[in-house]
Design a protein around this nucleic acid. Sequence first.
DNA 1: GTAAAAAGTGAAGTTGACTTCAGGTCAAGC
DNA 2: GCTTGACCTGAAGTCAACTTCACTTTTTAC
Lengths: 154, 154
Amino acid sequence: MNDLLTMGDVSHRSGHAPSALRYYERVGLIEATRTSGNQRRYHRSVLRRLAFIRAARHVGLSLEDIRDALATLPAGRTPTRQDWTRLSRSWRSRLDEQIAALMALRDGLDSCIGCGCLSLQRCRLSNPGDRAAGAGPGAVYLPRLLRDPVGEEL
Amino acid sequence: MNDLLTMGDVSHRSGHAPSALRYYERVGLIEATRTSGNQRRYHRSVLRRLAFIRAARHVGLSLEDIRDALATLPAGRTPTRQDWTRLSRSWRSRLDEQIAALMALRDGLDSCIGCGCLSLQRCRLSNPGDRAAGAGPGAVYLPRLLRDPVGEEL
DNA sequence: GTAAAAAGTGAAGTTGACTTCAGGTCAAGC
DNA sequence: GCTTGACCTGAAGTCAACTTCACTTTTTAC
């Protein structure tokens, strides 16, 4: 019993199916050493990566994004807390954006920030020539992705 | 020139590709009448539905969810503002949850709400026997989906 | 030492959400 | 009235992210 984890250990403790772990390895998200009999053995630090992957997946980030992020972690040594912090910071604006979009949808659905509709017909938030004009209380831009691309006369 | 919209109109003004509009029709998200020559003609209200679909898709809701929601709109008449408001309310808790998850990830990645790591090793938020113990400033539950399923010794 | 559980492989299947394609049909403008 | 661009259809393709399958090999436990 050394300190390496088996497939079963990692699967159970990370909550990812074995097939997913093999898949993640194939696409370069995690790695493992092998026994003489070709079975995978994982370093404990893989669990942290997997927790990160789980969280990031849950909020809708792609494996490609996640791989890119994980690629910024140092090779050769177990990432430190600073490493993970730096990584998270690089996502902060992205997460902030996504949060803003969700809140805008939630609030927009409920009130369209003032006009109580999704009609957008006379709503300044969707009027291309008059976006956020006045900027009164609660006048907030809808994130671009939530706006109607043309926006006229919905 | 009546008040019905062609495929091209709707595609252009909604920002959805024609193929997507046909697909949405096939799966019951939108509908259209047909000309004598079998071409689609859309009512203006479809644009509102499509704006809703776009927004909901953007925040990660499935077409199935969206269809279920849209199915609560009245048949036979153009939905009123109250109809859309009611619909949005039914999603509010769901959106709130997703917002909370994102904020937890953002904050958790940056600070793990106090311990500055993703290690979760001694973090009370991930310690099954001691969740949010103390409940000091900023002590918040990580949403279940963001927590490690086992949580020990990451 | 052997049986059972766990793990290995590559290839193919799945699901959701569309897009692309091939081969016609319709409608608007001159 | 005819050309040209917009539309039609069903079937198949695509992409991400996995899972399932069929079959072999390792490991673990008694």
